[in-house]
Each structure stands twice: as structure tokens, then as C-alpha cells.
Computed example of a mutant assay.
Amino acid sequence: MRAHLLLTAPLALALSACGSGEPAAVPPQAVVTGERFTLRPQQLPDLAEVPATVTTRDMAEARARIPGVLTALNVHAGSRVSAGQPIALITDSRLTQEAAAQGAGAAAAEAQAARAKADLDRIRFLHREGVYAQAKLDEAQAASRAANAMLAAARAQQGAVKAVEGQGVVRAPAAGTVLVADVPEGSAVAPGMLIATITAGPPIVRLDVPEGLAARLRAGAEVHVSGLAGQAAGETAIGRIVRIYPGVSDGRTRADVTVSGLSPELVGQRVAAAVEAGAREGLAVPARFVEQRFGLRFVRLLSADGKRAADVPVEVRPLADGRVEILSGLHGGDMILAPHAGAGK
């Protein structure tokens, strides 16, 4: 009986404490510590998506200068060439025949000039000996001068034909990379026909801007370029507009953008570009508050009481000043923590 009382006494004390109405003591909850940032709406650049192409500031075009047949094409797309380098050969059989005819004419004129000189030398000697009169000498001198003039004319015609024939050699107008060279060998070509397109100058990104957006472009505006070879998913390169071309063609205008570190090997690649076209209200945070894991981006959102933090997925867009714009996942007034923030008492 005494043992039973000893066992029931603690239970009675516990039940009496529950019925007294006084709450049990709860240890204080930990407060999350670390660098904090409160999101506030602010004016941010408004970006418009436009198509673009990696190209060079200038495009050098190697064109045919004479009609004929493309007998040799020594380059292909991607070939590196130097200025003046022969890249193709165009031949015209008519020029070959004309050159042969002019050569024969020049040889005949040379023979006539040689004969006239020999006659002049003989008559000059006989004139000194008193055999021929002065009139005979004058006639021989005139004939020699006429023969020499005919020889000069024949040689000039021969040189002109050779010069035209030499225009069949197509040379690179500038140093760079061949972008297009797709004329098959054996094709008939006409003067002015494009044989090869060669990049010239530093690589740039050329925007193809709708005319409705053209009026809002300005030199120095920020441009975000994505889709470059070697870029990670979601990564963008930031550049600036350096030239806006006047006029509108087919409802579009062009603008050139310089991007640091752009490789000439990317010339011809189609990319996407977001161009600054005004300003709008948005949310921006320092890039250090955004953490990337498994291809997704997260920020640590702090609860209103400051005692809890949760990882929230967000969509972001990089800004030129090192910050990122929050496109979705957060709202104005939210407080976020830097990654790896801890908890304190």
C-alpha cells in the first residue's frame, strides 16, 4: 500500500500542475542573422527582345571583274585570308585568243620597225656619201618614226588585253575570314557577280530592330546578348550600341553593338538581344544575394518576424551595374538574406 502511494504522488502533482491554468515555459526561438536587403521598387532599364547576328563592322566583297568561267576557287567558308591574296581565277577563252592575236600584231610591228630602222641607217650612210638627196633621207626618217609608232600602239594593245586577262584573278579585298564562298567551280560568271564575302574589322553584334522601336534607340544604350556559342544557359553578355544606321528598310533598321571578348569565330551566328528602350519600375538586388543550384536561382526570404528563412526560386536578369533584376518570385517590401546566413540567439 505504501509503495502504491509513492507511485501515484508524482502523477497527482503533474495533474495538479496541468489544471492550474499556467502555461509551461518555452525556450526562446532563434533569430536568423546575416546580411539583409529589403526590396524597393525602382526605375530599371526596359529591355526589348530583338533578333541579332554576330558579324563584323565591315563586309568586304570579292566580285568578278570580267565575264568568263570560274576555273578555280581556292577558299571556303571559314578560311582566313590576307589582303590581296588570290582566292579565285576566272578565264575567258576570247581574251586568250585576243591576246594571241595582239601578240602576233606586236611581233609584226616590231619587224616593220626593225626594217625601217635598217633602211634609215643605209640611206643615212649613202646620203653622207652624196648618193641620195636630202629628200630621200627625210622620207626614210618619216617611215622609221611611223614604224616605231605602230610598234608602240601594238604593244599598248597587247598590254591592255593582258591587263584585262589579269583581272580574272580575284583577290581578297581585305584581311579576315571568308564568310561565304559558294560559287561552284566551272560556273559562268558575269562582271560584278559576288564570288566571296569576307569579314573585315572587329566582330560586333548587329541588331535587326523593328521600325516601331527604332525611334527609342540611342547610342550607348545597354544591350544584353544571349545564345552565344559557349555561353551557359541563362548567361548573357552585355554590350553597348555604338552605331545606329539611318533609314528604314522593309520595316526594320540596323544598329551595331560592341561586346567585350567577342570572338571572330562566332561571325555568322544568330543570337538573341535585349536592347534598352526606356525605363520601367522593377526590383533589383545585389548579385551576391542570389544563389544558383542545379540550374535554378534561389534567394533566402526572411519571414516577417525575422525568425525563419526559406529558399525561394526566382527568375532574374543581369544588369550592367552588377545587380540583378528580380522578374518573379519576390515582391516589394520583402526582406532577403545573403546565402549561408546563420541563426543566432
Results as ranks from 00 to 15, higher is better:
2 R>S: 06
217 L>D: 11
170 V>N: 11
87 I>L: 09
240 R>G: 05
119 D>W: 02
327 L>P: 02
150 M>C: 04
41 P>H: 14
216 R>S: 13
230 G>W: 02
278 G>H: 10
92 D>K: 06
18 C>N: 11
57 R>N: 11
329 G>M: 10
142 A>H: 04
134 Q>A: 15
248 V>Q: 10
174 A>P: 04
317 R>H: 14
198 I>W: 04
99 A>E: 11
215 A>Y: 02
57 R>M: 13
59 M>T: 07
275 V>D: 12
40 R>K: 15
183 V>L: 15
245 Y>P: 00
266 L>E: 00
174 A>T: 14
26 V>Y: 01
272 A>R: 07
323 R>H: 13
331 H>C: 12
338 A>L: 15
188 A>H: 12
113 A>L: 06
243 R>M: 07
248 V>E: 09
249 S>W: 02
83 A>Y: 03
44 L>C: 13
308 R>F: 06
94 R>H: 12
10 P>Y: 10
96 T>L: 00
234 G>H: 04
12 A>W: 03
269 Q>D: 04
295 G>T: 03
279 A>I: 08
17 A>C: 09
14 A>R: 03
256 D>Y: 06
57 R>T: 12
275 V>I: 11
157 Q>K: 15
41 P>S: 15
25 A>Y: 12
343 A>C: 00
48 A>G: 07
316 V>S: 08
163 A>Q: 08
179 L>K: 03
170 V>F: 08
257 V>W: 03
147 A>M: 09
190 A>V: 08
186 G>L: 09
283 L>Q: 06
64 A>P: 08
94 R>P: 00
155 R>N: 11
132 Y>T: 13
263 S>K: 06
104 A>F: 08
98 E>A: 10
93 S>D: 12
244 I>G: 02
184 P>A: 15
319 L>R: 01
177 T>E: 11
275 V>P: 04
300 R>S: 14
246 P>Q: 01
136 K>Q: 15
170 V>A: 09
92 D>E: 14
50 V>T: 03
72 A>R: 13
104 A>W: 08
167 Q>F: 07
283 L>P: 01
226 S>R: 11
233 A>W: 00
205 V>R: 01
254 R>S: 07
156 A>D: 13
187 S>C: 05
34 G>H: 02
46 D>F: 13
114 A>K: 03
312 V>R: 15
287 A>S: 12
222 E>N: 05
34 G>M: 06
101 A>K: 05
215 A>I: 09
11 L>Q: 13
213 L>A: 08
125 F>Y: 06
177 T>A: 07
343 A>R: 09
311 D>N: 12
278 G>V: 08
212 G>P: 00
210 P>D: 09
288 R>Q: 08
143 A>G: 00
136 K>I: 14
291 E>G: 01
267 V>P: 01
